[in-house]
Design a protein around this nucleic acid. Structure first.
Length: 554
RNA sequence: UGGGUCAUGGUGUAAUGGUAACACAGCAGAUUUUGGUUCUGUUUUUCAGGGUUCGAGUCCUUGUGACCCAACCA
């Protein structure tokens, strides 16, 4: 989160600064409250950056609190991955807490409500409750159990806890207003019976609080000052405030912002799960997945994701941020820090006919032109080289300034070469090209006076190594796959291209997990966890901007 | 025919009654031993009607449109 005072404040920052200025709060405390029932995705990342960012910006703090009130969907596996993802993004929670830590307190508070005549045990079925709920335009009807005495309710609620009723036999409901124009206020359910094993409390409980009874009170217990959630919870705010007021506890306040979506991505838990289960991707951390673990494996840096979250802004209207902004952020970050390396993904052999057979020569090139401190590395030049197929055309179109028959090109950090022969097989496919090099054009001591426009990367056949390279493209072909009737039909068939036998320079052969590189002229790449000693595997994080590809599309 | 939230370029976000701006994307050019980076220029904007005002994206009013709410999910 930027602390630049020149940047305009978003509406939450305005609220916080007003609260701080008025003395309503001396410091702020926010929270990120995931339910541990799935893996975190880019949408969660924006919420994490928002909550932790505000805590940091205003010298406050942020809790990570698991909203673990529904034991049938939750698991410690998710707890662990969520903690890992939050830390990977670069944030350290002030406290790692669980709504389940507050079950006893929430139970006591429910009894307070019962004593006040503000809650009752309802034996209606789910269907009956739904039928009595009314509709947005018609008031609901009171439950026949609504006027049970506090004494009776207290005994019944204790029986609920004691396990004397089966699942779904009854619920505890707040007694508010069945005619409220806000559907949420029509006697909301507070507790339901679930004889289920909870990942933290085990079999201690068979009644579990609903979101509305757990969330606000958990905020209050932790003395959260600004409880930030998405817009769909706006109608819940009335109930949030009602509960806190009935109990007379610390008045945490809820503020809503619009969920921040990203184009070409999907954030529905169900749909993400489908992609994994049906094998459209390999796993939850597949580099094509919009999960935080997917972005991590893809090679995105935490800084780039934080920068993206800062740049997309914040508001209260439905929005879809451009994936191209995320790509801009990762390129911007990696351009500064990634070491440059040569790799040839689609090799074409070049023979330098005027270079002595068996001879090699040591050259040098910069590790990162954006960072003088990154130093240099050695390259080996020789008679036989590899270049990209794309960097040679027998019949080049206008504006093509790479290699072609009779044409000249600079081999980066080496010599200028000129093509004089194209060798083809019986089918007419080019098998290799023959060139001459200009001995006096050696980089750094060029006296040739030649200025070819094209500069291409290359590898010496004598020491090029093999590697597997995985090229990823957008998972979906449409900007908003979630709105499609069949989102699977919009999967990009070319979202993954595996190159088994790419060639890399020796300096890349022992790259370690977590290292990121720019493959010169190709894009940014990182080491995949599938890599083994002697068998490197690289993922393409993002391509470089490609003005030539754009020119060709015209 | 209820309530809530919202409406500014292609996408986002500012402008808090006083010249509609910034970023990304796009386009054009300069530089470049990465068709990268960097730099310069540039196309495109206030949902509609009415009103208040010297002056309205902003205030009032009437519409229109979008999203959310009738889970023993969060």
């Amino acid at each position: 989160m930027s602390t630049n005072s020149n940047t305009p404040l978003n509406f939450l920052e305005e609220i916080i600064e007003a609260d701080l200025a008025s003395g309503k709060h001396k410091t702020i405390l926010t929270r990120f409250p995931p339910e541990p029932n799935g893996y975190l995705h880019i949408g969660h990342a924006t919420s994490i950056c928002l909550n932790f960012g505000l805590g940091l910006k205003y010298g406050g703090a942020t809790n990570l609190r698991f909203d673990d009130t529904n034991p049938v969907t939750e698991d410690t596996e998710y707890v662990e991955s969520i903690i890992e993802d939050v830390r990977w993004l670069g944030f350290e929670p002030a406290n790692i807490l669980y709504a389940s830590d507050y079950f006893e307190q929430l139970y006591e508070w429910a009894k307070v409500l019962i004593q006040k005549g503000k809650a009752y045990v309802d034996f209606s079925t789910a269907e009956e409750i739904a039928a009595m709920k009314g509709t947005p335009t018609m008031p609901g009807q009171n439950s026949p159990y609504r006027d049970t005495t506090p004494e009776e309710n207290m005994a019944l609620f204790e029986k609920m806890r004691a396990g004397e009723f089966p699942d779904g036999h009854c619920t505890l409901r707040a007694k508010i207003d069945m005619a409220s124009s806000n559907m949420i206020m029509r006697d909301p359910l507070l507790y339901r019976i679930k004889h289920a094993h909870h990942h933290r409390t085990g079999d201690k409980w068979c009644i579990y609080p609903m979101y509305d009874w757990a969330h606000g009170q958990s905020d209050s217990i932790e003395k959260i000052t600004h409880s930030i959630c998405t817009l769909e919870f706006a109608p819940h705010r009335e109930l949030y405030d009602w509960c806190i007021e009935q109990l007379g506890i610390f008045p945490s306040k809820q503020y809503e912002f619009a969920r921040r979506n990203v184009s070409y991505a999907i954030t529905s838990k169900r749909k993400l799960k489908l992609l994994v289960e049906e094998g459209h991707v390999r796993s939850w951390d597949d580099p094509r997945m919009p999960t935080i673990s997917g972005f991590r494996r893809r090679g995105y840096t935490p800084a780039s994701i934080r920068e993206f979250c800062d740049r997309i802004g914040l508001g209260k209207r439905e929005m879809v941020a451009d994936m191209s902004l995320l790509e801009f952020c990762i390129r911007e970050d990696l351009n500064k820090i990634a070491l440059r390396r040569f790799a040839v993904l689609d090799p074409l052999k070049v023979v330098i006919t005027n270079y002595p057979e068996g001879q090699t020569e040591a050259l040098e090139t910069e590790n990162n032109p954006e960072d003088p401190n990154a130093g240099n590395r050695p390259l080996t030049f020789g008679r036989e080289l590899w270049i990209e197929q794309d960097d040679f055309m027998e019949n080049p179109p206008p504006k093509y300034f790479r290699l072609s028959p009779g044409g000249m090109v600079r081999l980066k950090s080496a010599y200028i070469i000129q093509c004089h022969d194209v060798v083809k097989d019986a089918n007419g496919h080019i098998t290799e090209i023959h060139c001459t090099y200009v001995p006096e054009s050696r980089s750094g001591q060029d006296t040739s006076g030649l200025k070819p426009k094209g500069v291409i990367h290359w590898l010496a056949a004598s020491n090029a190594q093999k590697a597997e390279v995985r090229l990823y493209d957008r998972l979906f072909q449409v900007e908003d796959p979630a709105s499609e009737e069949d989102f699977l039909a919009t999967l990009n068939p070319h979202n993954l291209q595996v190159i088994e036998n790419a060639l890399i320079e020796p300096a890349l052969a022992d790259a370690k997990l977590g290292e990121r590189f720019q493959f010169t002229r190709l894009g940014y790449f990182c080491v995949d966890p599938d890599a083994q000693p002697g068998k490197p595997v690289f993922n393409r994080t993002v391509t470089l901007k490609d003005a030539w590809a754009k020119e060709q599309q015209k």
